[in-house]
Computed example of a mutant assay.
Amino acid sequence: MWPGPWESWKDVPYEDKNWLFERFHCYFQWEEKWNGVIYSCWERRIAGKILYLLCRV
């Protein structure tokens, strides 16, 4: 699931963030007009959890 080794969300390249969001979008569906709002919420949540997620990996 993780396309690269990172220590924090700030280290994740923009392209990889988009790839991870696309994977998230595969599991949950919404209208395209909500992409910006959902991306912002998703990014805030994953940024706070990435250390925990990486430790589990």
Rank of each mutant, 00 (worst) to 15 (best):
V12K: 02
C26P: 02
I38Q: 00
G36T: 11
W2L: 09
Y27L: 06
R23Q: 12
W34E: 08
D16N: 11
P13I: 01
P5V: 15
K10L: 13
K49I: 04
E15M: 07
W6V: 05
S40Y: 06
R45V: 04
Y52A: 09
K33Q: 12
W2P: 05
W2Q: 11
R44D: 12
M1Y: 07
I50E: 01
D16M: 12
G36L: 04
Y27F: 09
A47L: 01
I46E: 01
R45L: 05
L53E: 08
E7Y: 13
E15R: 10
K49G: 05
W34C: 05
I38A: 01
D11L: 03
W9N: 02
E7R: 13
W19V: 06
C26W: 13
Y39E: 10
W30P: 06
F21I: 08
C55K: 15
Q29I: 10
E32F: 04
Y27E: 10
Y14H: 11
E15K: 09
R44H: 07
Y52M: 07
L53K: 06
M1S: 13
K49T: 07
S40M: 07
N35V: 15
Y39M: 11
I46S: 00
N35Y: 05
V12H: 00
G48Y: 11
E15C: 09
K17C: 06
A47Q: 03
E22W: 00
D16E: 15
W34N: 05
N35R: 15
C26H: 14
R44V: 10
A47T: 08
G4P: 03
N35L: 12
D11K: 02
C41V: 12
C41A: 10
P3T: 02
F21R: 11
F28H: 09
C26D: 14
S8G: 04
Y39K: 14
Y27V: 05
G48R: 02
Y14I: 10
W9Y: 04
C41Y: 07
W30I: 07
I46P: 00
P5C: 11
W30L: 07
E22G: 03
Y14F: 10
E32C: 06
W9T: 03
Y39R: 13
P3I: 02
I50T: 03
P13T: 03
G4D: 11
P5M: 11
R23K: 13
D11V: 01
Y27I: 03
E22I: 05
R23F: 08
W9S: 02
E22N: 07
C55P: 06
D16Q: 14
Q29W: 14
Y39F: 15
H25E: 08
P3R: 06
I46A: 00
G48C: 01
F28I: 00
W42H: 01
P3E: 13
Y39H: 08
V57R: 10
R45D: 03
I38C: 00
E43G: 02
Y39N: 06
H25W: 08
R56I: 13
E43D: 07
F24W: 04
E22Y: 00
K17L: 09
C26M: 14
H25F: 05
D11G: 02
E7I: 04
P13W: 00
R56Q: 13
P5R: 15
W9E: 06
W2A: 08
K49N: 11
I50F: 10
R56H: 13
F24E: 04
D16C: 10
L20H: 03
F24A: 09
